[in-house]
C-alpha cells in the first residue's frame, strides 16, 4: 500500500515538473521574440543612421566647399545636405513598427 502511495506521489511530482517545463519554454520563446524585435529595431535605426552618415560625409564636404566660394548658396546646399536624413526617418519607422 505504502509502495503504491509513493508511486502515485512520484508520478504527480514528475507531472508537475513536466507541466512547469512547458510553461517555462513558452515564456522563453516569448522572451526571444521580444529580444529579436529589439535587435531588429536597433538595426533599423542604427544602420539607417550609418547610411546617412556615409552619405552626408562627402555631401557635407562638397557643400562646405560650395558655401566657402558662394555663401549665398547656403540654403540650396543645406537641402542637399539633409536629403540623406530620409534614411534615418525610414529607420525610425522600422523602429516603431517593430517596437
Amino acid at each position: 500500500m505504502l509502495k503504491k502511495l509513493f508511486s502515485v506521489l512520484a508520478i504527480f511530482a514528475l507531472a508537475s515538473v513536466a507541466l512547469a517545463q512547458e510553461a517555462a519554454t513558452t515564456a522563453a520563446v516569448a522572451d526571444t521574440t521580444v529580444g529579436l524585435k529589439a535587435i531588429g529595431a536597433g538595426l533599423a535605426l542604427g544602420l539607417g543612421a550609418v547610411g546617412t552618415g556615409l552619405a552626408q560625409g562627402p555631401i557635407g564636404a562638397a557643400a562646405a566647399g560650395v558655401v566657402a566660394e558662394r555663401p549665398d548658396k547656403f540654403g540650396a546646399m543645406l537641402i542637399w545636405f539633409v536629403l540623406p536624413e530620409t534614411l534615418v526617418i525610414f529607420g525610425f519607422v522600422g523602429f516603431f513598427l517593430l517596437k
Binding site: I59, A61, A62, A63, A64, G65, V66, E69
Partner: peptide
C-alpha cells in the same frame, strides 16, 4: 569632395 566643390563653383 571639398576641393572639387569649390573648383566647380
Amino acid at each position: 569632395a571639398y576641393i572639387n566643390g569649390r573648383i566647380r563653383v
